[in-house]
Computed example of a mutant assay.
Amino acid sequence: MSRRVSDVMTRGSRALPLDATLYDAARIMRDEGIGDVLVTLDGRLCGLVTDRDIVVRGVAERRDARHTPLGEVCSADLVTIGPDDDLDTAARLMREQAVRRLPVVDDEQRPLGIVSLGDLARAGGVDPGVLSGISQAPPNL
């Protein structure tokens, strides 16, 4: 039987509303030792902001972290996955989309967690060549 995303995903991923600031996201990342925060609108996933987004789209663009809303810097064109999808589907999506993490959402697009490349590697059962190909893909901006 194939393992499901819900078996390996990180649950309880942090989320902030679209109008929260870069400063809010950066503090959560620092305090919790994480590199990404889900962005929501009315409880539904609408974006993802990473520590890299804060640096490249925020700091390097001289944006004021205390006043810049996440909506101005987060990635909004997300590829998501459901908790009942199998790990091979997650690996395929990561490879095809050149992403290292996938938000896990329910049928109404409410965030449930995140499955990362590291989660797949630790789970085993996914072709290591596929994982290597994902990790070598250039990051998307």
Results as ranks from 00 to 15, higher is better:
A76N: 05
R27F: 09
L45I: 14
D36K: 07
S135Y: 14
A76M: 07
T50G: 01
R11T: 14
D85L: 02
L112I: 10
R122I: 11
S75V: 06
G82D: 05
M1W: 09
C74E: 00
R52D: 07
S132M: 14
T68M: 05
L141W: 13
D88N: 13
R4L: 14
L112P: 06
G47E: 00
I34W: 10
P83V: 01
M29R: 02
H67P: 06
M1R: 12
G43Q: 06
A137T: 03
D107K: 14
T40S: 01
I34H: 11
D127K: 10
I54Y: 05
D127M: 09
D19I: 02
L117E: 08
S132G: 14
L120A: 07
N140Q: 13
D119V: 12
V5I: 12
G124H: 14
A76L: 01
V8Q: 04
G71R: 02
L78R: 02
L93D: 05
C46M: 12
L78K: 06
A65I: 11
L48D: 10
A65D: 10
M1P: 13
R101S: 03
L38Y: 04
R52M: 03
E72K: 11
P139V: 06
V55K: 11
L87S: 10
R52N: 09
L48T: 07
S132C: 02
I114N: 01
A65E: 08
G43E: 11
T89Y: 03
M94E: 04
V73I: 15
D84F: 07
A76T: 10
R14Q: 09
I34Y: 12
S135D: 07
I28K: 01
G33Q: 06
V49C: 01
S135V: 15
I28Y: 11
C74G: 00
E72L: 08
A90T: 06
D64F: 05
V55M: 09
D24E: 13
V130G: 03
I28W: 09
H67L: 14
L141I: 12
D19T: 15
P83G: 08
G43K: 05
T80N: 06
V59D: 06
L45C: 01
G33I: 05
E96A: 15
A98C: 10
R44C: 05
L131M: 01
V104A: 05
T68D: 13
D84N: 15
A123N: 05
V56E: 04
R11Q: 13
S75N: 02
D88G: 02
A15F: 09
D36V: 05
V56N: 03
A98I: 02
D24Y: 12
G118L: 15
P111G: 07
G82T: 14
D42W: 04
R100Q: 11
Y23R: 14
L131I: 12
L141D: 15
V37W: 02
T50K: 00
M94D: 08
A121K: 15
N140S: 09
P139N: 03
A76W: 01
G129R: 10
G82H: 12
C46L: 01
D36C: 13
Y23E: 11
D77V: 00
A20K: 06
G71P: 03
G125Q: 02
A137G: 08
P139E: 10
Q97G: 03
P103K: 02
L117K: 04
G43N: 04
R100P: 07
R57G: 04
G113P: 08
G118Q: 11
V5A: 03
E32P: 13
